[in-house]
Amino acid sequence: MTQHYNVSGMSCGHCVASITEEVREVAGVSEVVVDLAANTVTVHGTDLDDERLRAAIVEAGYEVGEAVPA
């Protein structure tokens, strides 16, 4: 399963590390890919919970927009 999100406010390596750290703690996540240029976060895993993934990104300090179609 893969989830894609538009995320605003990312601008540097620290942003990537913060989001990656928070999202990896969500159950079922196997990989997190943060693309600064595209302002997207892609999450791979099994039984991913959209609400928990969004909460993890917000917890890292960023705004989550609409999910991007896979």
Rank of each mutant, 00 (worst) to 15 (best):
E25T: 07
E51T: 15
V33H: 12
Q3K: 15
E21R: 09
V34N: 08
A37W: 10
L53R: 05
A17H: 08
V32I: 06
A38C: 08
L53F: 03
N6A: 14
V68S: 04
T42L: 07
V58I: 13
E31W: 07
A55Y: 08
I57W: 05
G28E: 00
V16F: 02
V32L: 11
T2A: 11
G61P: 02
S8K: 01
V43N: 07
S8M: 02
S30K: 13
A27C: 08
R52N: 13
E22P: 04
R52I: 10
E31R: 15
R24L: 11
I57P: 06
V33A: 09
G28Q: 04
A67V: 13
L48C: 11
G9V: 06
D47C: 01
D49N: 15
M10P: 02
A70W: 12
V34L: 05
E63Y: 02
L53C: 10
Y5W: 13
Y62G: 10
D35S: 04
V64E: 05
V26S: 05
G61Y: 02
E22I: 02
V29T: 00
V58N: 11
G65T: 09
R24N: 14
D47S: 12
P69W: 05
E31G: 06
G61D: 03
S8P: 00
T2K: 15
D35E: 08
R54C: 10
T42K: 10
A55R: 05
T40G: 11
G61F: 03
V7Y: 02
V41N: 00
E51L: 10
Q3V: 13
R54W: 08
G45H: 09
E22K: 12
A60L: 05
A37H: 05
T42M: 10
I57M: 09
A56H: 09
V29S: 02
G45D: 02
C15I: 03
V7E: 06
H44F: 14
S30M: 11
G45P: 09
V29A: 00
S30F: 02
M10T: 04
G61C: 02
V26H: 00
S11R: 07
H44Y: 14
E66C: 11
E25Q: 15
S18Y: 01
V33F: 06
R54S: 08
E51W: 12
N39I: 01
H4I: 12
A56Y: 12
M10R: 03
R24M: 10
V33N: 11
V29Y: 00
V32F: 12
E59W: 05
S30E: 14
G28P: 03
D50E: 15
G13K: 01
G61T: 00
T20A: 01
A17G: 08
R52Y: 11
H44E: 14
A17L: 03
R54Q: 14
E66P: 10
A67Y: 04
T40V: 04
H44Q: 14
R24E: 14
A37C: 02
Y62D: 07
G28A: 12
E59T: 15
E31N: 13
N6P: 02
Y62V: 10
V29N: 00
A27Q: 15
R24I: 05
Y5M: 11
S11L: 12
V23T: 12
G45C: 12
V34G: 04
V7G: 09
V26I: 06
G61Q: 04
C15L: 04
M1W: 13
V58R: 13
S11E: 10
V32W: 03
V29E: 00
V29R: 05
R24K: 13
P69C: 03
V26F: 01
